[in-house]
Amino acid sequence: MVAYSKKVMEHFMNPRNVGEIKDADGIGEIGNPVCGDMMSFYIKVKDNKLEDIKFKTFGCGAAIAVSSMVSEAAKGKTLDEALRITNKDIAKKLGGLPKNKLHCSNLGADALHKAIKDYLDKKGK
């Protein structure tokens, strides 16, 4: 089947920050079930920092592990720092991903960035 790293399996079996934030300051949704994966990120911002992050993911082991890792990597970071997290960073932190699963990691940081942009857009209004 899939040769996942230990780290991927660990995050898949014990994902961090699963859930929704009811009064989220920003929401980022990416993907759809047709393409295979779908991620929703919810953020709470305080003093320009990501005070809380939650996610929900429909997808494979890699998609779930990536979501978990993104949430862990970004929590407590400033918005600028979080926006600088790349999909490549996440794959690296997870000890690599199988080649045909790299597209999953391409969704994770994008979904988070979308949530931050959603927050910034709302704030700008």
Binding site: Y4, C60, G61, I64
Partner: peptide, 8 residues
């Protein structure tokens, strides 16, 4: 839900 997650 998605099948690979279930299989894992």
């Amino acid at each position: 839900i998605e099948g690979e997650s279930i299989l894992l």
